[in-house]
Design a protein around this nucleic acid. Structure first.
Lengths: 152, 152
DNA sequence: GTCTCATGTAATTTTTTATGTTACATGATG
DNA sequence: CATCATGTAACATAAAAAATTACATGAGAC
C-alpha cells in the first residue's frame, strides 16, 4: 500500500517557513522538500483557503505564514489537505446485501472508527508551535554535539 | 489512497465457510466474493500456513476450516495476511538528516503508533466465532422480517 | 493408466492513486 | 512592458493491489 505523505510534507514546509520571515517561492520550498513547485502550490492551496498561509504574485511574491502557530493543530492541517483517508484498510464493498458482509463490516468499522478517532484526537493535541519548539530544541542539541566534536 | 480490502475479503470467506461443513473450491469462494479463484488461493495460502484452514487437491478437494473459531481473532487473520500497513499516511522519508523532518516525524510517529496499537488491540478482541454469531443473529432478523412481509 | 478436477504459483496485465511534469494563463512589481 | 511568481488544467510517471493467464502438481474416478 502506498502511503500518503502529504501531511508529513506540508508540515515540513510550514516549519521551515516558521524559521524565517521572508516570503518563500514555490520553487524554494520545492527544492527544500525535493519535489516540484506545482506540488507545493497544490498542497498549499488548501491551507490558503483556511487562512493558514497567504500567497502573493509577482516580484517579491511567494508564500507567507498567516496564522498563530500556537492555534493551529496537526489536525487542522490534515483537514486543510481535504481529510484524506487515514486507514490503509477498508471494507471490500459498501452497501452489502450479503449478511455475512454486514457482520464483517460492522466489526471492522467499529475497530476502524476507534482508531481513526484516536489518531485525530492525537493530531488535535499537537500545535505547529509545539513542533517548532521541538525543532529548536533539536537544533540546540546538534550545535552542542558539533562543539564537542571539535574538542570544546 | 487505495484501500486494502484483503482482510475484509478473507473474513467474508471464512464466515461463509463456517456456515457449511463441505469443502469449498476456490472457484466457489471466488464467485461468492465476486473475484478470481487465484486471488482466493493467494489469500488463503497465508491462513493455511498458520493452520487456520486446510486445502486438498483433486476430486472432492477444496478448502476447509481447520481451527476453533472461538480461538482465532481478527488480529490473527490480519497477521496471517502478512500484517500489511494499517495506516494510509506515512512520513515523507525515513532516515531524515533534516532536523525539521525529525521533529515532524517524531510527532506523527507518536500519533500513528498509538492509533495502530489501538486498532490491533480492537481486532484482537473479536473472534471469528463472535462474527459468526453476529451473522446468525442477522439471519434471524431477516427471516422474521420476511415472515412479517408475508402477513404472518 | 489416464482423464478430470482442484490446488500451487509464476508471470503478466489492469486499475487506481499519489506524485511529477509541462504548458499556459493571470497578476504584480520594477 | 518585461520579468517574476502564483493558479490551474492537462498529461505523464510510478507503485501497489487486484485480476487474469498459463502451466505445473497432485488426488480421486473410471
Amino acid at each position: 500500500m502506498r502511503r500518503d505523505s502529504r501531511l508529513s510534507g506540508v508540515l515540513h514546509v510550514l516549519l521551515h517557513m516558521a524559521q524565517q520571515p521572508g516570503p518563500f517561492t514555490s520553487e524554494t520550498l520545492a527544492k527544500a522538500m525535493d519535489t516540484n513547485p506545482v506540488v507545493i502550490r497544490r498542497i498549499m492551496a488548501g491551507l490558503r483557503e483556511l487562512g493558514y498561509v497567504r500567497s502573493e504574485k509577482g516580484h517579491g511574491g511567494g508564500w507567507r505564514l498567516a496564522c498563530d502557530l500556537s492555534k493551529v493543530t496537526l489536525r487542522d492541517v490534515y483537514t486543510a489537505l481535504g481529510s484524506p483517508a487515514l486507514l490503509a484498510m477498508g471494507n471490500r464493498t459498501e452497501a452489502p446485501g450479503c449478511l455475512v458482509e454486514q457482520a464483517v463490516n460492522a466489526a471492522l468499522d467499529q475497530a476502524f472508527h476507534d482508531a481513526e478517532a484516536l489518531l485525530l484526537s492525537r493530531l488535535g493535541e499537537v500545535t505547529l508551535a509545539m513542533l517548532s519548539e521541538d525543532f529548536r530544541k533539536r537544533l540546540g542539541s546538534r550545535k552542542l554535539q558539533g562543539m564537542r566534536a571539535h574538542g570544546a
